[in-house]
Design a protein around this nucleic acid. Structure first.
Lengths: 282, 282
DNA sequence: ATATGTGAAACTGTTCACAGCC
DNA sequence: GGCTGTGAACAGTTTCACATAT
């Protein structure tokens, strides 16, 4: 996430936004400058919209037609004020005194997230993770069909995984162009990641989901999001360490068993909940 | 990242840290209070420290003994001011006019992240993702040995995956306690995730990495981090959509081929780079 | 000379609290 | 009465810029 991510935006390469805000040279208290237009939606809010969408889909399936911000917030693991503010970024689709119509909200969030048009995905690196991704049969609740698989291993060429035959990474440009791939998921080891990334970019792919432990260098028009297992583990480690030195030791666990919904789970980018992970085993 | 980064930290349930900082009741300008120690470190900075650590490890292997904040920052994909501030949270281990000693920094970051003591990991849900995790042979660059595997499937019981035999989820409390598991990685489908989570909590596990698309409800002393594939995809989708409507269309891709290191990759929680993903295929 | 460490400014994101509409 | 939508206060994070140390 995140140069937009959650912590979002890096400092560099953000010439665009910087430039536009340099309109008035005046000193003192600067007036907000309203010309900022509507396209803003904070990155963090975008991530949460995806979560709300999942919850709403669940409600829709259960024939629930209306929800209040409070109900939806609890289900999504955020507080209601934040949820309302997030929804306000995409428009006013609620009814005061009543709540939101599930179907309407689903439609509006899907539209905002661009889910009305499909994004074909290419998975590169057909190992364990690649398999998991390929078998995911259209990522979230459909909308992201896996259209191409690539690897280096000669033994895998042509072998169908999740119904799609594996191609050689050398064919990335051709195959991606042919199948109109818009998102590339790099699930290779660190070593080949940058090379694969370059090929994807050359093929016109402008959105990449990177699972490899490297900092990909890409032209600025390419959006890269990274999922880093090690970082997650180390963050948890930090909390383990902090906890054990901070607490004089009052707990020995055994009191907090089953249903005690208190603290929130922090998602990598939402600070909260989920939407659709990876199907692994029924 | 993400958050994650990110936006990290929720507002609720943060009583602990609040309470501890209430030591001096004095008003006015509060003196830094040296006893403030390490506990402050912004979440966002913690995530990035893990990234710096990876880069530093690489430098260490290549026999590089010293780095400037600028060099390290470029390699990690952040700007140098942010990097220096991040490092300042853990202490002053640089030399003005010179830079940082790689070995020293590695040691300090490891200490801060609690990597000096091992965290044994249990993986629940031995499907594709579970396999990937189990075979990861100690997550990042070691430090997170996988000590237990669980699943529901009778056919898997006792079968060794990555050298560790699979146990039944019913045995989570016993096995986790026996093997002193401190981190649980939930790689099950959405359905069983909350149940598995409850068992882990009952077993005394207080840190959970959740790959299942559900909002886990846990007691507040339990830390949950979530990796959500669908959210990542949908965020990318949002950017695809935004891009194509925002740009009057000046690009047709073909100009930004290989080596053009410009924009940064946003990690789910660092806003930047990587540390160690998942080994998939050599 | 050069590069760190850090207050202070700027910015982004979150929460409060209430006006406005049902 | 209940609930949305949102300005304003607040909190967290990033960037600036420079004093400080080698």
């Amino acid at each position: 996430m995140t140069a937009h991510g959650d912590d979002v935006r890096d400092g560099e390469a953000k010439a665009a936004s910087t430039a536009e805000s340099r309109s008035s040279e005046s000193e003192g208290v600067s007036i907000p400058e309203p010309q900022d237009r509507a396209r803003s939606i904070p990155e963090a809010a975008v991530a949460r919209l995806a979560v709300y969408l999942r919850v709403l889909s669940g409600l829709h399936e259960r024939e629930v037609h209306t929800v209040s911000s409070e109900e939806l917030a609890v289900a999504a693991g955020v507080n209601s004020a934040k949820l309302r503010k997030d929804l306000s970024y995409i428009g006013s689709y609620g009814t005061r005194g009543v709540g939101y119509e599930v179907a309407v909200l689903i439609g509006q969030i899907e539209r905002t997230l661009g889910l009305t048009q499909q994004n074909r995905v290419a998975v590169i690196g057909i190992g364990n993770l690649g398999h998991a991704l390929a078998n995911y049969g259209g990522f979230p609740s459909r909308g992201f069909p896996v259209a191409a698989l690539f690897d280096l291993d000669p033994d895998l060429m042509g072998v169908p995984v999740g119904g799609i035959p594996v191609d050689h990474v050398d064919d990335i440009p051709r195959v991606c162009a042919e199948r109109d791939v818009t998102i590339g998921a790099i699930a290779t080891p660190a070593k080949g990641a940058q090379d694969v990334c370059d090929r994807l970019v050359k093929a016109g792919v402008r959105c990449i989901l990177n699972f490899a432990p490297v900092v990909l260098q890409v032209p600025e028009e390419v959006e890269v999001r990274k999922v880093d297992l090690a970082v997650e583990m180390q963050i948890l480690s930090f909390h383990v360490a902090r906890r054990s030195q901070e607490t004089p030791d009052s707990t020995d666990s055994e009191h907090a068993a089953t249903g005690a919904p208190q603290s929130e789970n922090r998602d990598v980018n939402t600070g909260i909940s989920p939407v659709d992970g990876m199907v692994v085993r029924p």
